[in-house]
Structures are given as structure tokens and as C-alpha cells.
Amino acid sequence: MQIKAVRSTPHLPGEEGLWVLILGDMMVFSLFFLTFTYYRGQEVALFAQSQKALSQYCGIINTVLLLTSSWFVANALNAARAGAGRRAQRLFSLAGLCGLGFVVVKVIEYSGKIDAGITLTTNDFFMFYFMFTGIHLVHVLIGLAVLSYAYHRAGREVLRPGDLSALECCAIFWHLVDFLWIVLFAIFYLMK
């Protein structure tokens, strides 16, 4: 009933301050994308050639993993709002598993590149590839810590509005991680 009272007013998910971090991060990633597009314009052939060395499968698997994890997180939040803390916990851990899967695929992908002699300094395409996906990977790792916090927080006996707001913050961050990957996937793996 307390929950309903909160939801009946116009509602910004999470808390206002969090959006400083979210919008700030999106601004920086937009700058990444603009820079990438600019450099790509200078060396279209090299970028197209280098793109062929990326594994589309890894990219697609990772995209599916993150989208699925976001779906779990959204459902976890709904479960928490309905007062089903246990179910929310289960869904948060499934989301975390997908996130771990993402990290594993990324590590396999990186080591494959390094074995093939492709590194950060090979050319501009791979500089951007390793740097931007690397910075994103840091976000995924932070996101996994955030999800385990959400798991812990959803385990409380009774979920109060404060708990729900904290869970929303966690969910927003994870959706951000997912969203940034979708854009990275598009520019590195798909952009023709």
C-alpha cells in the first residue's frame, strides 16, 4: 500500500542524482561514437577491412546476453514492486549470470584477437575497439557489483519504498550498460 502511494505521483525512476551519472556517461559515450565516426570517415577502407576480423557471433551472443539480462532485471523490479522479494532475487541472479556470460565471451574474444597478433596498437580501428569495449567492460563489472547489491537489498524481510528506489537505481544502471553495448555493437560489428 505504501508502494502505491509512491507510484501515484509522477515518478522519475531511481533518484534524481543518479541521472547525473547516467546522462554524464551517455554524453561521454556519444563523444566516443562521434570520434569513432570521424576517424572512420578518414580511413573507411581500413575500418571496413578491420571489421571483418571481428567475430559477428561473439557480438550477437553478447547482445542477446545483455538484452536477456535487462529483461530479467525489469522483471525482478516488477517482482520487487509486487512484494515478491525471493522471486526478485532469483531474477537478479539470472541477470547477473548473463552478465558473467558477457564477460566470459568478451575475454575469449580479446584473447583470440591477441593470439592473432591484433592489439590496441595494430591500427586506429582496433585502438577504438579495445578502448571503447574495454571501458564498457569496466561498466559491466561495476554493473555486476551493482546487481549483487540489488540481490542483497531485495532479500530484506519487507521491501520499503527506500528499498524499491535503490533497486530502481541498480536496474537503471544495468539498463545503461545494456544500452551502451547495443550502440557499441552497432558501430563496431554492423556499421557498413
Binding site: E15, E16, G17, L18, V20, L21, G24, D25, V28, T35, Y39, L120, T121, D124, M127, M131, I135, V138, H139, I142
Partner: peptide
Amino acid sequence: FPRWMGYFTIWAAIMFEAGAIAFLFKSGPF
């Protein structure tokens, strides 16, 4: 310390991490 300052600080800390990469490149954005 308003809460937004906490989030702003986290964001700034993440953005600072790119600095040390300067050892690897002599031109370009890094």
C-alpha cells in the same frame, strides 16, 4: 554533499581512468 555530488564524483572517477593509457599512444584521441 548532496547525493547528486556522489554520483557526479563516481562519473568523474570513471572518466579519469582513461588517463594512464597515454603511455601507449603518440597520436589520436588517447
